[in-house]
Computed example of a mutant assay.
Amino acid sequence: MTSATRRLHFERHRTDRIGWLRAAVLGANDGIVSTASLVVGVAAAQSSQSTIVMTAVAGLVAGAMSMAAGEYVSVHSQADTEKADLDRERAELAADPAAEARELTAIYVDRGLTPELAQQVSEQLMAHDALGAHARDELHVSSALAARPVQAAITSAAAFAVGAALPLAVAAVAPMASLLYWVAGTALVFLAVLGAVAARTGGAGMAVGAWRVTFWGALAMAITAGVGTLFGAPV
């Protein structure tokens, strides 16, 4: 064996980032879009700057708590489902391991292995970690994609607060006469940067990521500004 073949082969994959990256991008995007839209809508209704800033602060706090609660509940539901499936699989393995081995063999045959090789793979994997093999190949549950409710809740709340703080800061320092335009313009820049960074972190195209996030943010702000102008009251 040569030194080249003995050398360890390392690869960097991004699937282990899915949990926190999804929560962080969702939180920051919601923080920017909802707070900027709130500020734009209130500004379009001819409110005072102090009212606009206080509205944005309230939106930041309420939104962060809402994101944390929503993410925790939804991701915990996923975790409960995964646990129930694993418990059921554990019971089936204890009751009829031979049937479970045949089930795993059939999965590998469907993926392209010969029946003989599929049986050997199934036997070896089950001897090593039967539940882990069925979790991964039958239930599609893995450590990288497993639901983590607390992580999702904390990440979403923190990301929302950071995202919401950006239009809030602009609203606090921008001239009242042009506050609406300052908030809307900078929010689009923030969204474009967020989309590009998120796409880069996830291994996707930065331009597409930036455009996708910016488009929906601009649409949300435009609709909110229209409502504020139409009704002439905070929305």
Results as ranks from 00 to 15, higher is better:
Phe10Gln: 11
Leu166Arg: 06
Ala58Ile: 12
Ala164Thr: 06
Gln124Met: 07
Pro115Thr: 03
Pro175Trp: 08
Ala233Gly: 00
Ser34Ala: 10
Leu93Ala: 02
Val75Asp: 02
Ser37Lys: 01
Ser178Ala: 13
Gly70Phe: 06
Asp110Trp: 03
Ala233Thr: 06
Met221Lys: 10
Arg22Val: 14
Gln46Phe: 07
Thr214Ala: 14
Gln78Val: 12
Gly112Met: 06
His134Asn: 01
Gln120Val: 06
Met1Trp: 14
Arg22His: 08
Ser47Arg: 08
Val73Tyr: 08
Val213Gln: 11
Ala133Trp: 09
Ser156Tyr: 02
Thr55Gln: 02
Val173Thr: 13
Glu82Tyr: 04
Ala233Phe: 06
Ala68Phe: 05
Ala24Val: 03
Ser66Asn: 06
Asp137Tyr: 07
Ser34Leu: 07
Val141Tyr: 12
Ala99Tyr: 00
Leu219His: 05
Met206His: 09
Val61Trp: 04
Ser143Cys: 04
Gln46Asn: 05
Tyr181Ala: 13
Pro167Phe: 12
Ala91Thr: 04
Val208His: 06
Leu21Thr: 13
Gly19Thr: 15
Gly205Val: 13
Ser142Arg: 06
Ala95Phe: 10
Ala36His: 02
Val208Met: 08
Val42Cys: 07
Gly185Val: 12
Leu166Met: 12
Arg90Lys: 11
His13Tyr: 14
Ala172Phe: 08
Lys83His: 13
Pro149Asn: 02
Ala171Asn: 07
Val53Phe: 12
Met221Gln: 09
Thr15Trp: 15
Ser156Cys: 06
Thr51Asp: 09
Gly232Ile: 08
Trp211Asn: 13
Thr35Asp: 09
Arg22Ser: 13
Leu131Met: 06
Ala225Glu: 06
Leu194Trp: 04
Thr155Asn: 01
Phe10Arg: 15
Leu230Pro: 00
Thr155Ile: 05
Asp87Cys: 03
Arg111Ile: 09
Leu125Ser: 02
Ser66Cys: 12
Gly209Trp: 11
Tyr72Leu: 02
Ala144Asn: 04
Ala147Val: 02
Gln124Tyr: 10
His76Pro: 00
Ser34Phe: 05
Ala135Leu: 00
Arg136His: 13
Ala23Asp: 11
Pro175Leu: 05
Glu89His: 03
Thr15Ser: 14
Ala222Arg: 05
Met65Asp: 00
Gly228Glu: 02
Ser66Leu: 09
Met221Gly: 11
Ala99Asp: 08
Ala68Ile: 07
Gly70Lys: 08
Ala99Trp: 01
Gly209Phe: 05
Val40Ile: 12
Ser34Thr: 14
Ala192Asn: 09
Asp96Thr: 01
Ala153Val: 07
Phe231Gln: 04
Pro234Asn: 00
Val235Thr: 10
